[in-house]
Amino acid sequence: MATLKDIARHANISTSTISRFLNEDPTLSISEHKKKAILEAVEALAYQSPKRSKKQFTQAKVAEPRPNETSLERQELVIVNFLTPTQEIDDPYFTSIRAGIQNRSLQKNINLQVLHLDQIDSNLELIRQSPAVVAVGHFSAKATHTLYNTNPKLIFVDTNPLGAKTDAVLIDRFALAYDLMQHVVASGCQRPAFIGNNEARLHAFQQVTKAHGLYHDELCKVSKEYCIESGYLATKEMLQLPTLPDVVYAATDMVAIGVYRAIYEHGLSIPDDIQVIGTNDIASARHMSPSLTTMRLFPFEMGEAAIDMFIEKLEGRKHTKTTYFGHEFIWRDSFKKN
């Protein structure tokens, strides 16, 4: 008597997938091609299930794929995250990107295989066989070239280390910081401060403040982390200065939360003593006290766009492509309008 293992060998499909299909698991996502292969194996081997009859299996009708129809289930799409799941919990921006990737993949019936950057070297064959690889976040030169040499069909999200060689979904950090700083200048602030990494937002801040004679080196705090603690510690340092900042530009809303805490511990108020502006517009920004003025980004949509790029590759797009997402300044109570 044929067994599930016999069916698996005949159809070249795992026994767990076959079992879930034959037992009509509603959570199973499987291509029409695989369904047909399973049913043909059941018929050829005269498989009998203790729970269901052969007749029930063979009566199921499998739709034939249409000519030139692209199957999104042929192989799993590999996603490589630079953050671990634990690190991602503290970063709503990258959490939203992942949610966008998962949402569009679910809509399009695409299976995902998620790796962390530390798992790249041990999964080179998986990466090589994937129809494309979505790389989310920031990778070292070594990791970037390993990925590209293994599978050049890369789609980077939030970074573009290889330029025109690969696809990318990006925000223009310099442009958003430049636009934000125009509001700061127009507000009449004289001692703007910045807390964030040494990247495009810092460079835009420096360019605008120097151009208007508002730059103060002691008010630029560069940190390796985008987190509450980095905002808190940097603000505490600035609050020891003889002359305080009148506005703090936090590179992320999470940094801004730390800024709030330090200001309140110092017995000061927002925005009367120090104004605060963040970046990203996380869900809790509007509920902070006072509500946080911020530059809204669109990370969820960026994740969806990465999957749309993957589908374009499957459908035959040969050229590389870069998509930039915009930004929107959201006025709230932590920053005074002029």
Rank of each mutant, 00 (worst) to 15 (best):
Y324W: 13
A41N: 03
T146L: 10
H116V: 10
K142C: 11
Q206H: 06
Y93D: 10
P65K: 14
S105C: 09
H145F: 04
A41R: 03
Q119R: 13
A177N: 08
L115I: 04
S334E: 04
K142W: 10
A37T: 04
A63M: 00
L180M: 13
I7R: 11
V222I: 14
A262D: 01
P131R: 10
P290Q: 08
L124G: 09
I13G: 13
A256R: 00
H287L: 14
L233Y: 05
T294G: 01
A143G: 13
R66E: 12
L124S: 14
Y178T: 07
D167S: 14
F57P: 01
K55H: 13
D167A: 05
A37M: 12
F82I: 01
E225Y: 05
T17N: 08
N23K: 03
A193N: 12
D272V: 00
F194E: 06
K34A: 13
M238R: 06
H216G: 02
L214M: 02
T146N: 09
L124N: 14
F57M: 01
I171D: 07
R332M: 02
I18H: 11
A11C: 04
S334V: 01
L115K: 11
S96H: 05
E125F: 04
L180T: 12
C189P: 01
Q87N: 07
N12H: 09
D172N: 11
S29C: 15
F329P: 03
F156E: 06
P85R: 12
Y47G: 13
E88D: 15
H10W: 02
E229A: 01
